[in-house]
């Protein structure tokens, strides 16, 4: 309602303005955290499995945070039963990509029932913005972003360019790596 500076001034009572009691209140809070966490650390150290964790830290990279199921991670190309890419090189993903990081070269598929297949399917991850439009645009469910791979940093731009063989070799994330909630 009223957001004038005068209104935002807090009206401290005498108790708060003496400062010392409030300091001890703050110290009590931090000291309680200290002792509770220390107790839990020690109980874990002596092998009590039921003890609450003494810290909220995930010891990355040994210990990974669970990933949300809808998280968009590194791309992969799905395969048919015979192992060939499901992609039909319709160029939908290349067209919709706002970062223009997908590059497809189409070729004839040996099976006459399938019109085309990609000869090259290249994603430049240095440009990709992980919007997920390619996944949504794909009519064949040929590209997904569910590998759970988050670490693809590289020292060179060339290493950020993923070819069709690399994209086909990626697997979907294991269920235990995903957040079960």
């Amino acid at each position: 309602m009223n957001s004038s500076p005068e209104h935002n001034k807090r009206d401290y009572g005498l108790w708060q303005r003496t400062y010392v009691p409030e300091v001890f209140g703050g110290l009590a809070i931090t000291a309680r955290h200290f002792f509770v966490n220390l107790k839990n650390h020690i109980r874990r150290l002596i092998g009590r499995k039921d003890a609450a964790p003494g810290a909220v830290t995930f010891q990355y990279p040994e210990q990974r945070r669970p990933l949300a199921p809808r998280l968009r991670s590194l791309h992969r190309l799905t395969k048919r039963e015979d192992g060939s890419p499901r992609c039909v090189a319709c160029m939908m993903c290349e067209t919709i990509c706002p970062a223009r990081c997908i590059y497809i070269v189409a070729t004839e598929h040996p099976d006459p029932n399938i019109e085309k297949m990609p000869e090259q399917f290249t994603i430049d991850l240095g440009r990709c913005v992980f919007c997920g439009y390619c996944v949504e645009a794909c009519p064949e469910d040929a590209i997904r972003m569910d590998t759970g791979i988050l670490e693809f940093a590289s020292y060179t731009r060339e290493n950020m360019i993923y070819t069709i063989d690399q994209l086909l070799s990626h697997e979907t994330a294991k269920p235990d790596a995903q957040d079960t909630q």
């Binding site: 931090t30 955290h33 200290f34 966490n37 220390l38 650390h41 003494g54 810290a55 830290t57």
Partner: peptide
């Protein structure tokens, strides 16, 4: 270490 334990860190 004390600051870590106080702040729920390791």
């Amino acid at each position: 270490k004390q600051s870590a334990v106080m702040q729920d860190r390791i």
